[in-house]
């Protein structure tokens, strides 16, 4: 399935659709957000893509511990790298968006924005994967590196989910649709999202995620070529 071409073309078509429909179709008229609500199709998709890529990385780590196949180690580190890349893009785009909405129009300070639960969750995820790569870098023995980093990946990912679930219950949120916020912006909450927007949002998530997976598979294949002598197939 991975080497088939159809899902790469699907990713391309979905993203073309995202851009055309995302810019041209009507969106709800809302104060503060105004036209920037269209960022939903790009910025939020980065986070969704990140989570999916981290999940795939987790899956490959589990697979590594079960079968000790070096391919799984390469896969899990590549997906983690792409996930972190998406996360950084999400942070960067989020920063731009925050500047015109929460900071300028709602009068929040940068400090209060950074304490926002979704941002804390994202920061934790990025720190975890940063630590993951530091850990990987500190080994010289390939086999040991694969094993220990897989253990850390599994542990950290398993701790990440309860954290993401817990934090919003501790800190008030600025994000729409989150518990504790009262701004009725039509995003993120499933029951709240405008139906035209939903028609673009979901394909956009799939499109961006597929693009991420594609680039990750390229990275994996490149690593496999580089390490041909180690794998010995």
């Amino acid at each position: 399935m991975v080497n088939k071409i159809w899902w790469k073309i699907l990713s391309f078509l979905l993203l073309v659709y995202t851009i055309v429909a995302g810019f041209l179709l009507p969106v709800p008229r809302l104060n503060i957000l105004n036209e920037t609500i269209r960022n939903l199709y790009f910025h939020v998709c980065m986070w969704m893509g990140m989570m999916v890529l981290f999940a795939i990385s987790f899956y490959h780590s589990v697979k590594y511990l079960r079968h000790q196949n070096f391919r799984s180690d390469i896969a899990s580190s590549s997906y983690a790298a792409l996930g972190s890349f998406f996360g950084i893009l999400g942070y960067a785009t989020g920063f731009l968006w925050v500047n015109v909405t929460w900071v300028t129009d709602q009068g929040q300070s940068i400090g209060s924005v950074l304490k926002e639960p979704k941002l804390i969750g994202a920061a934790i995820a990025l720190l975890i994967y940063g630590a993951y790569f530091v850990l990987r870098g500190s080994f010289t023995d390939i086999d040991k590196r694969a094993r220990v980093s897989a253990v850390y990946n599994i542990f950290a990912f398993a701790m990440l989910f309860p954290s993401i679930w817990i934090i919003p219950r501790l800190v008030g949120s600025l994000h729409p649709g989150a518990p504790g916020s009262d701004s009725g912006n039509p995003a993120l909450d499933r029951t709240d999202l405008d139906s035209t927007m939903r028609m673009i949002f979901y394909p956009a998530i799939i499109g961006w995620t597929l693009l991420g997976v594609w680039i990750a598979t390229l990275k994996i294949r490149l690593e496999l070529i580089k390490n041909k002598n180690i794998i010995n197939e």
């Binding site: 391309f12 993203l15 073309v16 851009i19 055309v20 810019f23 041209l24």
Partner: peptide, 11 residues
């Protein structure tokens, strides 16, 4: 124009 620019980059 905006759509065209973004599409060009994407393609």
């Amino acid at each position: 124009t905006v759509v065209a620019v973004c599409l060009t980059i994407l393609i």
